[in-house]
Design a protein around this nucleic acid. Structure first.
Lengths: 171, 171
DNA sequence: GCCACTCCTGCGAAATCCGCAAGTCTCGGT
DNA sequence: ACCGAGACTTGCGGATTTCGCAGGAGTGGC
């Protein structure tokens, strides 16, 4: 169930470079499967198979592998404001020293939902999801700014979420 | 199938304020359902019902309503880098005039996956997902900066995505 | 007190999921 | 060039799940 990582780079010679940490690039069929599941995460395997030209069992195995490899995850996503988390913010962080270490530390925080290393006037962007102002303040001032190597931060409190899609590949 | 939007504000008197545009706040049971589906978007309704103390049919109806209302969506999410979109960026935008109009215009762009209005030194944050540098440059310079009312923009090109979860409610 | 509305439950039929065994193909070694 | 290994694919039952529908319980409005 795990040795396939090595082998699945077979019959695909149109894609030269790997995209990240050893995960093989995806072929057109897997892309199609992902596309189907981005439209509806609960779509039956048989319907997906019909769309991408595969049998139901084949789709099932591919989906399972994609999930196991961590290439995709099938989840419910919500607007946090609707679910009771009333304070969110994007925090831009400047780091001196090991940027990746800071990013890892942020990753370990439960309130941090999104961490990305960037080029530009911030080294790291982190999205924070909290229940109220006190909680948000605590995370930013007590926890993030306390990390060794954090030079400065700038916060952007969310006022309104306008769009949130996961449709890349579907266009 | 659509008139329920008007009617569904009834039997809820335990929660005073609405979270956004008329959508009623969620009760503990719906929260529990969402939590289950955030762990696994394909979890069977019967299993969810056992976890939250409801029948299979009741869970099914609630899930359907949550989807119809747009409170949640069940989708496959991926790391865009793995799927062939090699250039992403967060763009901070300053607006003069109608901020919401700009946000709506951004929402209509296919390459824009995430739009949020913020307080702070940017009025709007938008996440862009593109295939390559040319594509990204085109979107930022030709399309976003061309919008009437956009005063200035600042881009943060993604170098590495470190964390991406959808587990709020599950902690 | 009655009506309108929502929500939950129970059940049978249809569809789907899941594991298994065998066939096909490509790649790599000899 | 042959041969074996590994992975992908296919087809097929049985268990599970999904789906639609009808009935009952609880609640607010008139």
């Amino acid at each position: 169930m795990q040795s396939d990582v090595v082998a699945s780079r077979s019959a695909e010679h149109r894609d030269s470079r790997e995209s990240k940490n050893g995960t093989p690039p995806l072929d057109a069929v897997s892309l199609g499967i992902i596309e189907q599941l981005q439209e509806d995460g609960r779509r039956p395997y048989a319907a997906i198979g019909k769309a991408v030209g595969l049998s139901e069992a084949a789709v099932r195995q591919r989906v399972q592998k994609l999930l196991d490899q961590g290439v995709m995850q099938i989840v419910a996503v919500t607007d946090p404001l609707t679910v009771g988390f009333r304070r969110q913010a994007m925090v831009g962080i400047n780091v001196e020293g090991d940027t990746e270490a800071i990013a890892d530390a942020l990753t370990d925080m439960a309130e941090v939902e999104y961490v990305v290393m960037t080029a530009g006037s911030f080294d790291v962007l982190a999205e924070i999801v909290c229940e109220d102002d006190d909680h948000l303040l605590d995370v930013i001032n007590k926890r993030i700014r306390a990390l060794p190597g954090v030079r400065s931060t700038e916060s952007f409190v969310y006022l309104k979420l306008k769009k949130q899609t996961y449709m890349w590949g579907t266009r």
